[in-house]
Amino acid sequence: MASRKAPTARQRRLGAELRRLRERTGLSLNAAAAVLGTDRTTVSNSEAGRSGVSPQRVRSWAACYECPDAAYVDALAAMAAERVSGWWEHYRGELADGALDLAELEHHATAIRSVQIMYMPGLLQNEEYARAVFAEAVPPPNPERLRCLLSHRLRRRDVLDGVGAPTCTFLIHEAALRMTYGGIDVALGQLRHLLEESERDNVAVRVIPFAAGGFPEVGSSTQYVHGPVPQLDTVQTDTATGPAFIDAEVRLVNYRAALDRVERLSLDPEKSRDFIREVAQSVRV
């Protein structure tokens, strides 16, 4: 018997939102199954993302749960309607599921805010810089895995292009600008690439200088990914075991507040470009 494919982060998120709808009504699994005219197993599997759910069922269940937010229900129904696999599925079995989930999350983003302390944002890395960063892993990846990691990293950048591309704000600490992964030539190439990307209409690069002092702890690498409605926002942080995804309502509120404070400490986009040019000049010396 073929093994059942594990649900993606997006499928799990849809299930988690269905569970939240139920819990807000105070219904147990058994009580909800009775109200919905189905069985406990169907409700449980849907909430865990283990089985698919149709847009019609999402709307029906939301009505039974008396959800008053039409935009939220529409967004959940749209998630349920998705059937086409994205480009990231090509890497399933080669890379960890978290890397695929991150690409899927970015693909569906309406806006992205990122804070980076030690590295350039993944979406703004050029190939040479990304190669140098991956080479620092312990143990270092073998040539085939490195090829796969690079291919996936560079393909993620496509999210910045085309109609409907998300509006992105990248908050980059001065430490990340001054780290010379791969040596001076690679560092300079990455800084030039960063300046080029900062000219995009949908990209704002803002530098957090050392002089800004302390700021809220948001992690060394944090992305706040906006969904079609605020309830479907997600925070992604880097951990030693891969990407972690956070969607609890209270934590989203706290991350939004922290990012707002960090952004207020950062330089505006034009001053940030001047700052990056100054760093590039100092690296050359």
Rank of each mutant, 00 (worst) to 15 (best):
W61N: 08
R19P: 11
R284Y: 03
A109Y: 03
R277Q: 05
E197W: 02
R59H: 02
S272K: 02
V235C: 06
P68M: 06
A80K: 02
E89L: 02
A70E: 13
L123E: 13
A257M: 10
S272Y: 12
D268W: 00
I117A: 11
S3E: 09
R20P: 14
C67D: 14
R10E: 09
Q125W: 02
P143A: 07
E106H: 07
F134Q: 06
L150G: 14
P121S: 05
A211N: 05
A80D: 09
G98S: 15
E199A: 15
E197L: 11
Y91H: 09
F245Y: 10
R22S: 09
D74F: 10
L29Q: 12
P121M: 01
V115C: 07
M118G: 02
Q223E: 11
D74L: 12
R261W: 01
R277A: 08
R155H: 15
A111Q: 02
P141H: 00
F134H: 11
R145W: 05
A132W: 00
R92N: 10
D247G: 03
A81G: 13
R256T: 12
E197C: 13
S266L: 03
F134P: 13
V205Y: 05
R59T: 08
V250P: 10
V133Y: 08
R22P: 14
Y129V: 01
L265K: 14
Q125A: 12
S60D: 13
L188M: 09
I172K: 12
S44M: 09
R57A: 10
C168F: 00
E278I: 01
R261D: 04
G93E: 10
L18R: 05
D268F: 00
A99S: 12
G183Y: 01
E66F: 10
D233S: 12
S198K: 00
A80Q: 04
R277F: 02
Q125F: 06
R206H: 08
R131A: 14
V133A: 11
E106Q: 08
E196V: 04
M118H: 04
L21C: 15
V186P: 11
S44C: 13
T222E: 03
R200T: 11
L177H: 00
S54T: 15
E94V: 04
R83D: 08
S60V: 00
V115A: 06
R178E: 03
L100G: 13
L18V: 08
A111Y: 04
R251T: 15
R83N: 11
L18Q: 04
D74P: 14
A137Q: 13
D260Y: 00
